[in-house]
Design a protein around this nucleic acid. Structure first.
Lengths: 245, 245
DNA sequence: AGAATAGTGTCTATGAGACACTATTTC
DNA sequence: GAAATAGTGTCTCATAGACACTATTCT
């Protein structure tokens, strides 16, 4: 098969379909959730799936991901990142489909989710209790997405995408715990987050059962500085690279 | 546009072409090089480009990448990793093309490169002195590949892919320096690499101008242990995530 | 002996992790 | 005062980084 042939003819080779799937994460009641849609039709009728769809010829991959995201959640201006491209030959029984997967982080309180013509339902699922089985190879996609989220959390300020405008330091710690799936030390967390100088104190307090808690705001100016990275801890585990069977 | 519609008709939507491009790295004279092909035809006639080609309908993305790699270098069984998928609308003037980019690491001494029908030449270029301009958006692809290589080097044993069966510790250090583009401390490097217990001493010595150097072998058994990661240093910089304009 | 290259030893500053302590609220 | 939650202080141990030192070859 020639590469970049002169006499290129668009119709000459059979082409795969290309879809964009978006793994949409949010935090509900301090717990990490993911948005899934229930399929109305064959294949995998009734199964839950990661929302996605075919790309248009006049939109970039990221534009397509944003469109899908908007269609499912009505949300705009969120954190969006390409995850991986899945291209096993028989992952879709209908035809050859290459799926470019994206991760999105949204604040649940802002979102209005809705079902569509192809789905009977749309729901947030806690990542700890996902439905089984998922459609296509979406279990792999999701597992990979969670792994990526976890590893990126350790060296980026990504967790702030999930938080409201103001929040307490212990809420932030809770997100880290949710995503990393382990307990963190309170004192060490306070120390590191303060050293990072990422937060701006607000005059606000939130009352609860015990001592009221101070609320903070994320300093976007510091995060915008691309050189700057808040690294919760140095301990990176596997990270990038995955084996497509 | 419907997602996963029942009455799915493969011909119903216009489909993009999908290519796989492989950024092939090697080490020549202790210097990091990348394989480029010179294009024979329009578009970008005469420009250097990353080798790649259209995927077949019956091969996975990774299979396609291995095929391309074999076609360009005749090499098999190398380190191969998906890099990123590039999908800007007008990146190829002929038609809509989505390119899934891969990174491969090969040992140059083993390879026999050859030109093909579409290329007038195939050459290894030092990454420090790349030709300008590259075809398509290949400058971006390459820059991204180098960044990925750099960041992965810091927490994987990937550098060993570039080395021959036996090598000296200072040669290994040299690879790290090449890829990271900075000087490393000799003593610290010796310390870390030995602590990692990744190397096996051989009885071999190599003579040079000064004191002969001990040769070592990579312990694949330790690296196979997926939990294990040789981390040259903790200092991860940006890493994953990229902005496709 | 001196140059060239290989390889080791050691000091210091940093910072992650553990954990005990203090503070402020409600009941 | 006790319970509940918020927030601080401090000690220790590991280790990254700097850098001086020793070792073995050739000419």
């Amino acid at each position: 098969m020639p590469k970049h042939a002169t006499d290129y003819d668009a119709t000459r080779y059979e082409r795969p379909s290309v879809t964009v799937d978006v793994v949409i994460f949010t935090l509900i009641n301090q717990e990490l959730h993911v948005l899934l849609v229930q399929r109305r039709h064959w294949p995998f009728e009734g199964c839950w799936a990661i929302p996605g769809g075919f790309i248009n010829m006049d939109e970039s991959l990221e534009d397509a991901a944003r469109r899908e995201l908007a269609e499912e959640t009505g949300v705009r201006d969120v954190y969006l990142e390409q995850l991986y491209t899945f291209g096993a030959v028989a992952r879709d029984p209908r035809t050859r489909v290459i799926s470019v997967a994206y991760i999105a982080l949204v604040r649940a309180d802002l979102q209005q989710i809705r079902a569509s013509a192809e789905s009977t339902a749309v729901r947030w699922f806690p990542v700890r209790t996902l439905p089984e089985p998922l459609a296509f190879d979406h279990d792999q996609v999701l597992a990979y997405a969670i792994g990526r989220l976890r590893s990126k959390l350790e060296y980026t300020t990504l967790a702030f995408q999930l938080l409201p405008e103001v929040f307490s330091i212990l809420e932030l710690k809770h997100i880290y715990e949710q995503i990393l799936d382990e307990k963190l030390d309170k004192g060490n967390f306070y120390r590191k987050i303060k050293e990072a100088d990422l937060l701006e104190e607000t005059p606000l307090l939130r009352e609860g059962r015990g001592r009221p808690t101070r609320l903070w705001r994320f300093r976007r100016d510091r995060a915008a500085d691309k050189q700057f990275v808040f690294r919760w801890r140095e301990d990176r585990s596997v990270g990038e690279g995955r084996d497509e069977k």
